[in-house]
Design a protein around this nucleic acid. Structure first.
Lengths: 157, 157
DNA sequence: CTTGAAAGACAGCGGGG
DNA sequence: CCCCGCTGTCTTTCAAG
């Protein structure tokens, strides 16, 4: 069972390549996986149509955009009525400073990765955050170093 | 001071577009920012040469790769001698399950975002993790829901 | 900055083995 | 699965305003 939902070994090799570098031409990818251009192109079409490949994007350098601050915010909400929480999550997700937002199991209800230009603008975000709904506990942990930041998933097989 | 290190308003509009969708042709981008193809292409070249655009990648769907488990792991290390920590961080970063790795200020020393196929393979990762060096505290929080996962940075101006 | 033109590369599609 | 070739689109460069 080394198959992942109908993806064979060649599909996985193609995926490993494009999730690292989507600027390669079909010809280059085809060479790397040992195919000619046409079947390689058809596989890419199928992978995009089936949604395995969601989209192609450019990765920017946050430092060169003046975005030097990354903060992980852990939130414990007070009351867990689902109606208020759905609104809370939607409003959080709408904030541009919020890069990632996960709902968690355990003591912490939500974790956010927040990126801003400086501590002043983080504070502005923080004030907007705590005004959304009453929160039991909010903990902000500032990142000192980004050791790894990977967009390419590990693909087995 | 709405300028970010020599990026004018048109540069920022180009960046906002390509970090959302890098499959657009130069022609389409040029139309959207109100330029003709030649100067738009030159700006893109400059943005790539200067490293503001780091690279172009394809975003895959983790669920369709059989990667259903996301866990945030918070680590407090016991001893803070810098030599051991550098090795520890390097070995962590080398693990394919570790998508993100940050060193933090405050009570938690490191936070990891770990993606695996199931709890069994997470446990295998966990055992490798705690065997690296003696750790004062390790807390794993499982994600129940990924509400937002953004690769595009907020670009002011 | 613009337009326009031209060369080359490449995608996207067919036919044929 | 492979190769060949066609057609149109896109990139890339150039000249000129």
């Amino acid at each position: 069972m080394s198959e992942i939902k109908g993806l064979d070994a060649i599909d996985r090799r193609i995926l490993r390549i494009v999730q690292k570098d989507a600027s390669l031409s079909i010809c280059e990818i085809a060479t790397q996986v040992g195919l000619s251009q046409t079947p390689c192109w058809k596989r890419l079409q199928r992978l995009e149509a089936s949604g395995v490949i969601k989209r192609r994007i450019a990765l920017l350098d946050p430092a060169k955009l003046g975005l030097g601050i990354t903060v992980f915010v852990s939130i414990q909400v007070g009351d867990h009525s689902s109606k208020a929480l759905a609104r809370f999550a939607a409003e959080l997700a709408a904030m541009e400073e919020v890069m990632d937002l996960y709902r968690l199991a355990g003591d912490v209800d939500y974790v956010l990765r927040v990126v801003t230009s400086d501590t002043t603008s983080f504070d502005a975000f923080y004030k907007r955050l705590i005004d959304l709904i009453p929160l039991k506990n909010v903990t902000s942990r500032f990142a000192l170093e980004n050791i790894k930041s990977e967009t390419a998933f590990p693909i087995a097989g």
